[in-house]
Amino acid sequence: MYNAVALSWSNVLAPPDVPADMPPIVFAMRNVLAVLAEAGTGPEYAAKLTIYLAVGVDPGVAYAATRSVWGDHRTAVTVLAVTPARPGALVEIEAVATLPDR
């Protein structure tokens, strides 16, 4: 099993190369995909996603954005509204995936 975690911040705290109109959940999902790819795996090997949203972030928007980036890969998803551990964080995503046989 491989565990990947990605964070996304409000546009005020986002890295300078992130477009201002990119939803934080999209940024975080793209980071998860990049981390999984670096480990030699991908969304097709993911068993579970846990998405932690700052209170006030619309879960409907989060689900739609997740699907737009993640695609049609059937993955268990849990979404929780939380007070972020890191001030300014809007989204944290944890992905648990297997590594493919090589």
Rank of each mutant, 00 (worst) to 15 (best):
Y2K: 07
L7G: 02
L7D: 03
S10E: 03
N11H: 13
N11C: 11
V12T: 12
L13R: 10
D17L: 08
A28I: 02
M29D: 05
R30Y: 10
V32M: 00
V32I: 06
L33G: 06
L33W: 09
V35W: 01
L36S: 06
A39N: 11
A39I: 05
G40F: 06
T41L: 13
G42H: 08
P43I: 03
E44D: 15
E44S: 14
Y45P: 01
Y45N: 12
A46N: 08
A47P: 06
L49N: 09
L49M: 13
Y52E: 03
Y52P: 00
A54I: 11
V55G: 05
V55C: 11
V55T: 13
G56A: 09
G56H: 15
G56E: 11
G60Y: 12
V61D: 09
A62N: 01
A64M: 05
S68E: 12
S68W: 06
S68N: 09
V69A: 06
V69P: 04
W70F: 14
G71Y: 05
D72I: 02
T75W: 06
T78R: 13
V79M: 11
A81F: 05
A81I: 03
V82A: 10
P84M: 08
P84D: 04
A85F: 12
A85S: 14
R86M: 03
P87E: 06
L90P: 07
E92G: 01
E92P: 04
V96D: 10
V96S: 11
A97D: 05
A97H: 01
T98P: 00
T98D: 10
P100L: 11
D101M: 13
